[in-house]
Design a protein around this nucleic acid. Structure first.
Lengths: 248, 248
DNA sequence: GGTCGATTTTGATTTCAGTCAAGTTGGGTA
DNA sequence: TACCCAACTTGACTGAAATCAAAATCGACC
């Protein structure tokens, strides 16, 4: 487990990482980032379909996405998959495993992804001596909790159109946070996966995409999405169970 | 903000608390429990319908339920309420507020509840010097994350009967964890609230309760629940989209 | 460039939960 | 005890998404 710093590793340091402000190091004093860097392991890229870890596997590390995209999913008792989230660069995966000995879910690359592995035992030890890191971890967990709650709400009370609108707007925001266009982007997952996440079958996904397009809210070409009428999208996604308001 | 220890406070200490093993102090060394006790504030009971805190209010503390039951809910943009959880003694509320300055949700007593308030700034300071507490906090957050994920799955892919079966079994487990009967218990919330949480309208709740009763899985008298056929309940809740298996 | 399997689309039909509209029950209180 | 309002139930009807079935498109790989 001893690591020898290589040139490439030091070049790809947290300090220089474009994702620093989204990821674990955000708001840490410079010297704490240095300490964090000391335990981060950069692994060779995982290609599309590859596992970062599998459900049931012993929990040792959390992972941060550096490039690419990752889905986390659970295999249910009856054998079907439930996708619990999609993860973009700067996001941390595996926090749901801290409480148990094993990972409750699997993490699978949606496209070739480079990943930082952070051994949890070392992170724990480090954060005992590093209040800022400890606070950062709590904030990240709290943010995740909030995100899950908002997904709950989405799934319990919203129509297919609203679910899709919300999730597209959320991706828009997340891409924008990463310096990409908020209005034109490429979804990294299949419609089947997105539908699974939203609790909708592929047929409904297809029809719902079409309906949003017919209403002039978005323009779709395969996985390429363009948000055409961002205002109307927001009206559909939030406000307005009065569908008049959305029809403006 | 200085506190003077009173007799009743020391009597109701974390050390002697029946809920110790479910709550924050679980697994802490004795002296750390003592330190935690030093910052816990026991407030006067909140009666049915009263707020522990309101959405939008400044985040200062997290709260642990000591007796009674609490719901947390958010007011949506369009004005309707979404209930994000029900909280029994030993459970910690307000963790979703750590990341922002304000509480994203309100906490309301479902029945008269006694509450421990834990000022977060002090908890943070204390946990900087108390590794065990810090680990305990991470585990609690991780557990919450897991619970939210399982709710997500419940809401996205399950029928009304399954949702109700799952939630009744979860309450059964939670009551059992608190030393109460797993097979006979009283739900602390209205059907309207439970329906809101499950994404079902009251009419559907009523019909679904009736169907579970007709199948001989449970026996219902108002809020009093008796689980009659726990095996069949589990078959319905988990496994079995082959409804044959459940019909055994 | 062509082939095969996976992904996506389209159409017809069914079903489960939502909506609307009345009751009924029950707990709190005057 | 009687009244009242909220909570819950019941029934008829509607509608959105699931299911079933088939075709079309895409894209990875030879």
């Amino acid at each position: 487990m001893t690591r020898i710093a290589t040139l490439s590793e030091s070049r790809d340091s947290c300090h220089n990482c474009r994702l620093r402000t989204l990821c674990l190091p955000d708001n840490l004093p410079k010297e704490d980032i240095g300490k964090l860097e000391g335990i981060v392991q950069r692994r060779k890229p995982v290609s599309r379909g590859g596992y970062l870890f599998q459900a049931g596997q012993r929990f040792n590390s959390i992972y941060a996405v550096r490039t690419g995209a990752v889905k986390t999913s659970t295999l249910m008792a009856n054998g079907d998959e439930h996708i619990s989230g999609f993860h973009l660069p700067g996001e941390v995966i595996g926090l749901d495993a801290i409480v148990s000995r094993d990972h409750p879910s699997s993490a699978i690359a949606l496209e070739t992804a480079s990943i930082c592995e952070i051994p949890y035992a070392e992170l724990e030890t480090l954060s005992e001596r590093t209040p800022a890191l400890q606070h950062r971890l709590m904030r990240i967990m709290s943010r995740e909790l909030l995100a899950e709650q908002s997904t709950n709400h989405l799934l319990s009370r919203r129509s297919a159109e609203q679910r899709l609108a919300v999730v597209l707007l959320k991706f828009s925001e997340r891409f924008a946070d990463r310096g990409l266009s908020a209005l034109r982007f490429r979804l990294p997952m299949s419609r089947l996966d997105l539908g699974n996440y939203l609790g909708l079958v592929p047929e409904t996904m297809s029809r719902t995409f079409r309906r949003l397009e017919e209403q002039g809210l978005v323009s779709i070409a395969g996985k390429e999405i363009e948000i055409v009428d961002s205002g109307a999208m927001k009206a559909l996604a939030f406000g307005a169970e009065d569908s008049q308001t959305a029809r403006t």
